[in-house]
């Protein structure tokens, strides 16, 4: 039974991720809030589950010409360095504290999302096009 619940959680996250919204920002709260998974295990599940998805998606995106690698090393190399440091920090952070921090991060992302939705609304009104 739990196999199916984890499968469905992953599917919902993959669906959102594939549509260009954050998959992990949905998978991690589902696992912790509804399925009682610890914050650390939920985070580990998300980073691992991302890899096969990326392995499937990247060749398709490359073929479609969507990958823009110009100057990308300037992003990836510092990202890798901070990712190593902050993954180590996460590993030694108390699960409860990490959960609260993650919650605050989600709230910040939601506020950012609200702002961009609002901008989208006002620009579509100006355009006068009703979809």
């Amino acid at each position: 039974m739990s196999f199916i619940l984890y499968l469905l959680s992953g599917a919902l996250a993959g669906l959102l991720g594939g549509m260009g919204m954050g998959g992990g920002t949905v998978l991690i709260p589902i696992l912790t809030i509804f399925l009682g998974v610890s914050q650390h295990i939920a985070q580990a599940t998300n980073v691992i589950a991302f890899l096969p998805m990326a392995a499937f998606a990247l060749p398709k995106h490359k073929k479609a010409g969507y990958l823009k690698t110009e100057g990308l090393a300037y992003v990836i190399i510092p990202a890798l360095i901070s990712s190593v440091l902050f993954s180590l920090l996460a590993s030694v952070t108390d699960g409860e504290a990490l959960r609260k921090l993650f919650g605050a991060f989600l709230i910040a992302l939601a506020v950012k999302g609200l702002i961009s939705l609002r901008a989208e609304f006002s620009s579509s009104k100006k355009g006068g096009k009703s979809a």
Partner: peptide
């Protein structure tokens, strides 16, 4: 890094990864 520190559950990660790929393809 997470796995080396013991944060890994095969019972959770396998179904979640299968679901993620399937959902990702549809998405």
């Amino acid at each position: 890094i997470y796995s080396v520190n013991g944060y890994f559950s095969v019972q959770i990660v396998i179904p979640a990864a299968i679901g993620n790929v399937a959902g990702g393809l549809v998405g």
